[in-house]
Write a protein that binds this DNA or RNA. Structure first.
Length: 523
DNA sequence: AAAAAAC
């Protein structure tokens, strides 16, 4: 048990810590803070919930508080994989840099650049950033990174998953080699090891005592249902959420479209729920998360954007509406509950189609969660019941379905107070032959107006020639403007109508016949 | 089978 005052932090920083109410350092803090204060590199193998953020924020604040930033010359960078995590780090700065003159700015995408640029111009000590926006601003000449004294990389293995490693590498190279680096990752796959050997100097390796694969504070349950029909799954979910005493809970889905549908279904049935995923605009994401944190929102329906790292101290329930395809995602998801010594419960709805994924999860967690049986739901009736018109649009997993989801009418689905009882063991309920999910949507083929599709084709055809003449820049800003405007997202809609008249760009009046034919792209 | 991240 180490108390914060023993770690060598300055009185100002210690005061800020005291104000938060923390007195005892976590193992990762206890080990990393003295090393970081001494100016040495740290390689921290630790997951969220171990106090990692404070482990780098505190020494960062302490070491930077003596100097002052110049315009466009930040002194430190903290990189995080998602916008929400970056924001979380910024909150940590707000707490711990309180008594200092340090300034910081959150550089993330999805929000206007104006304030970010203004802060850079004025001079800001710490950039807390996602890689894309940081590089974007750098390329626009908004800052120099030659004055960076400390660089922090958080959740490096997740950055790897997300394909950020080249960006991280690039940012490393833009900062001076003599900088101090604090590098954190929950796991150390080879690619991450390569990065650390290339960019860290004689780092002190610190391993936070590996928390058990899943914490003992989390009780896990499996809820098997006999069909993977989305409507049946939603019914099961609502029954489950309804019978639990949910103070606040997160429902995880595998797809963004499903997140929307499930959130809507819960709302329609009177639950206080809201969706969060990467297609929602950033201010909306932030507000939803803030509401959930403050308790103003009870149920967060989320994609895996919220699976890792988010630190919400007191989540009572996690519901896995879908089984994660990657077992480690499951561990991260349920890790949103049972935090800070609190008790949590995690449920996973399992359909016959999930066998493979479930096996992987069970193998990883090395536990055998108790099985619950949802009584009182007639799954066969849901599946085979009278087909309503809007049902199909609800299942049209592509684009926005106009007429809401099958769940729009409360009476449509036999919901209600299904009772849940512990099952003796394996359950005999045989799965009615589950209609193959993907086949059930011929709508998934999309008819595309000829010129648009043609433009898409045209890229493939013309590109080699263009490339030979003048290599494109990586980031797309300087693409040949006369060719393919239409594959840029924002332009697509506009072009659809226009190109009909204009023909296909780049072909003048001589459009090959095959480009004029309607094209069907299969999903 | 997916999600995330820049305009």
């Amino acid at each position: 048990m180490t108390e914060f005052p023993q770690l060598g932090l300055s009185p100002t920083t210690l005061q800020a810590v005291a104000d938060t109410g923390y007195t005892t350092a976590t193992p990762i803090q206890e080990q990393a803070i003295p090393v970081a204060l001494a100016g040495r590199d740290v390689l921290g193998i630790a997951q969220t919930g171990t106090g990692k953020t404070a482990a780098f924020t505190l020494p960062l604040v302490d070491r930077l508080s003596t100097g002052r930033a110049r315009a466009r010359m930040p002194r430190a960078i903290v990189l995080a994989p998602t916008r929400e995590l970056a924001d979380q780090v910024a909150e940590s700065f707000a707490k711990y840099a309180k008594g200092t003159k340090l300034s910081w700015v959150l550089l993330i995408g999805g929000v206007s650049m104006g304030d970010q640029v203004a802060a850079l111009n004025k001079g800001v000590d710490v950039l807390i950033a996602t890689p894309g926006r940081l590089l974007d601003l750098f390329e626009r000449g908004k800052m120099l990174l030659t004055g960076v004294e400390i660089m922090v990389v958080d959740e490096a293995d997740r950055m790897l998953d997300m394909g950020f490693i080249p960006d991280i590498e690039r940012i490393f190279k833009l900062t001076p080699p003599r900088r101090q680096t604090l590098f954190f990752s929950a796991t150390m796959p080879p690619e991450i090891t390569r990065l650390t050997t290339a960019f860290l100097k004689d780092p002190t390796r610190i391993e936070a005592s590996r928390p058990a694969m899943t914490a003992d504070t989390i009780t896990q349950y499996i809820v098997r249902i006999p069909t993977s029909d989305p409507k049946a799954k939603r019914t099961a979910l609502r029954a489950l959420v309804g019978r639990e005493d949910v103070r606040n809970g997160i429902v995880f889905c595998n797809r963004k479209s499903e997140v929307d549908i499930v959130a809507k279904s819960l709302k329609t049935h009177g639950f206080d729920a809201a969706p969060i995923h990467g297609d929602l605009d950033q201010s909306h994401r932030m507000k939803t998360l803030a509401d959930f944190r403050s308790g103003a929102l009870k149920i967060l329906v989320a994609s895996d954007v919220a699976a890792r790292g988010l630190d919400i101290p007191d989540v009572s329930h996690v519901f896995n509406y879908d089984v994660s395809h990657h077992a480690d995602d499951y561990v991260h998801r349920i890790g949103r509950t049972g935090r800070a010594g609190k008790l949590g419960q995690a449920f996973m709805i399992v359909t016959p189609a999930d066998d493979k994924s479930l096996d992987k999860v069970l193998k990883l967690i090395k536990k055998d969660p108790e099985e619950l049986v949802l009584d009182g739901i007639d799954f066969a009736a849901i599946k085979d019941g009278p087909r309503r018109d809007d049902k199909r649009s609800g299942e049209r997993g592509r684009g926005r379905s106009r007429s809401s989801t099958g769940a729009a009418t409360p009476s449509a689905e036999p919901v209600d107070i299904a009772t849940v009882t512990a099952a003796p063991s394996s359950q005999e309920a045989e799965a009615p032959r589950s209609r193959s999910r993907r086949k059930a949507r011929p709508e998934a083929s999309v008819e595309v107006a000829a010129p648009v599709a043609a433009a898409v084709e045209a890229e493939a055809i013309v590109e080699p020639v263009e490339t030979a003449r003048a290599p494109r820049t990586e980031r797309g800003a300087d693409r040949e403007p006369h060719l393919l405007q239409s594959d840029r997202r924002g332009d697509r809609k506009a072009d659809k109508g226009d190109t009909q008249r204009q023909g296909v760009r780049g072909f003048g009046d001589d459009i090959p016949a095959f480009l004029r034919r309607p094209v069907v792209i299969r999903a």
